[in-house]
Amino acid sequence: MRRFALIALPYAWLLALFLVPFLIVVKISLSDVALSIPPYSPQFSWDEGIGAFLAELDFENFVFLTQDSLYWKAYLSSLFIALVSTVLTLMIGYPVAYGMARASEEWRPTLMMLIILPFWTSFLIRVYAWMGILSQEGFLNQFLLWTGIISTPLTILNTTTAVYIGIVYTYLPFMVLPIYAALDRLDGSLIEAAEDLGCSRLSAFWLVTIPMSRNGIIAGCFLVFIPALGEFVIPSLLGGSGTLMIGKVLWEEFFSNRDWPVASAVAVVLLLILIIPIVLFQRNQQRASEAD
């Protein structure tokens, strides 16, 4: 009985907080726009029966998504931006994590604190701070002008570059922490052994350190890639009108176009796209925990 309760609880959680809302979204994605409260039809009513209600649903909105090139471009562009940001975050995050793991014991808590410290401020405020840094009259341009590196201010804010900066900045801790955890557990004597056996320091790094931190790298990459794919706040605040991301398209459909059915269809497809990396991530985590 207790065992049953233990299993039932997480499933009930999933059912209430994921499956039910998802089914509601699916239902809206199958209906039509209407000028009413709420703005779609058919509304469900017990009097007319489930049959009549179901008969009015169709896949029109999904067909529409395939016909308008905007959506495919937005999905692809989001995938691309998420992928590039993940690689950039990894390239910056790995050395940081490596440095932390190599730092002396007494410094590590301080370094860890520095990574976590930005979370004490609201995410939104930090993104707004970047607007101040990157704008034409912002700190970055003022500084570069002052040093004489550039003579006219750079346009960074409201471009895709700003979106990359925002995503890399925001998700860097999610990359650093798992890699640090993996590197921290790394047995230093393995590297010594490799060096004793004739490896140069560089090849010891490639052949021992990187493979041993593989799980950390994979976890970090997923933790950055998955939220970056559906990111909305960063592209809408830092990005320009040329930055096409599916999170923004979804928002537009819902709030600007007031087309809930199409917005729901976009969300359903986005979820289907996200399921692949999430399942891969889950498997990787499982394998990692089995290996331990």
């Binding site: 905007l70 471009k73 040329g242 096409l244 398209v249 537009e252 600007s256 176009n257 087309d259």
Partner: peptide
């Protein structure tokens, strides 16, 4: 009207995204 509304929102999304 409802029909024209969709033409307008479609056009606007297209304009903004530049596609």
């Amino acid at each position: 009207g409802a029909k024209v509304q969709r033409v307008v929102t479609r056009l606007w999304t297209k304009v903004k995204s530049g596609t």
